[in-house]
Nucleic acid binder design. Structure first.
Lengths: 183, 183
DNA sequence: TATGACATGTAATCTGTTACATGATTAG
DNA sequence: CTAATCATGTAACAGATTACATGTCATA
């Protein structure tokens, strides 16, 4: 039953577990110590998420004992878990992803090279660029319309969003050239 | 009972209602038609949110009838609603806001000028710049560490986040100078 | 008179937050 | 011995998503 929709916290866990098996506590520490602070490090989110993934057959937890250590459950990806992770990464980026789910795109891209390989990374970048270009254009047009009617702070806030997306587009092109240079 | 915490959708609604009274349907259209697409335009989110705000005494809905129109409930801010909106906007930006709640900061800023005045807008920008500067610095250091150990896609994904924050910092300075020039 | 847009809502389900609970191990 | 930290969880609750339900009005 891989059919049920998985939230991005679930994919973040799968991606981390693909790199190395880990316990819930390890994963929490990764979230709170690195730039993945955007994901919750609360036990009430992570432990239920792990057991959901286990119920879906995407990870398997094994209790590590002996050697005087405290009880510690280490999770590993199952073959289905790897398959699910791969297909999540390999789907092309849509405009709706860009508008509402940017963090998830970046997460997919971050894991892409290790999980599916450099060609998949390039594919993500190219579909991101393709979705982003017309979106930035439409934002520029809306900015023009807004300038005459909104107060300064409203116009500036919109400009921040526009600049952020322009910046992302530049980054995508930079990243594409980095991958093409490496070939 | 203004004490209960209000989610950002609630504040988005309060901010829009401060500009002009509107019905739930009007508000939905604003979310789906403008760059506020990040907020849900689904009735299952907006109508319950409006009735929560009404229960808390922050908005008041009045049914508009007569003139052959269909039933339409128009919401307006109450004095408490205005007070709640003002104090939400006027709180200084923390580092945690920058890391996990950027969209909410931009929302506060967008409404700030109309609701509290230009001096409050400047305050938000200055506290944003103050919180952002050390954060960007720490991201640059983490980027250095990462470069040697992570695969290219991981490094690049991190770089995207870094660039986004650098871009935001530039914008904040640009916005500050725009406000100071206008005085 | 039937279709579609207007306008409002409800119900089921899922996820995340907050706060609490538990027990083992290590440092002082 | 006791306080802190390691490690794992649970329970209550709030909010969002999805899908459905309802009724009105305009128009073809």
């Amino acid at each position: 039953m891989t059919s049920r929709k998985i939230p991005s916290l679930g994919y973040a866990l799968l991606g981390l577990l693909h790199q190395t098996p880990a316990s819930g506590y390890d994963l929490r520490k990764i979230f709170s110590a690195t730039s993945m602070k955007t994901y919750s490090d609360s036990p009430g989110a992570i432990y239920p998420a792990l057991s959901r993934l286990e119920k879906q057959g995407l990870v398997r937890g094994t209790v590590e004992e002996g050697s005087g250590l405290r009880r510690r459950q280490v999770f590993r990806l199952t073959p289905q878990g790897i398959a699910e992770l791969k297909q999540w990464i390999a789907v092309a980026v849509t405009r709706d992803d860009v508008v509402r789910r940017l963090p998830e795109i970046m997460l997919r891209f971050a894991f892409s090279e290790q999980v599916v390989g450099a060609s998949a990374s390039l594919e993500i970048l190219k579909s991101l660029e393709a979705a982003l270009k017309p979106y930035v254009q439409s934002l520029r047009e809306e900015a023009q319309r807004l300038k005459s009617i909104a107060p300064l702070s409203g116009t500036l806030a919109f400009e921040a969003g526009l600049r952020g997306n322009e910046c992302l587009l530049q980054w995508a092109r930079f990243a594409i050239s980095a991958y093409e240079k490496r070939k």
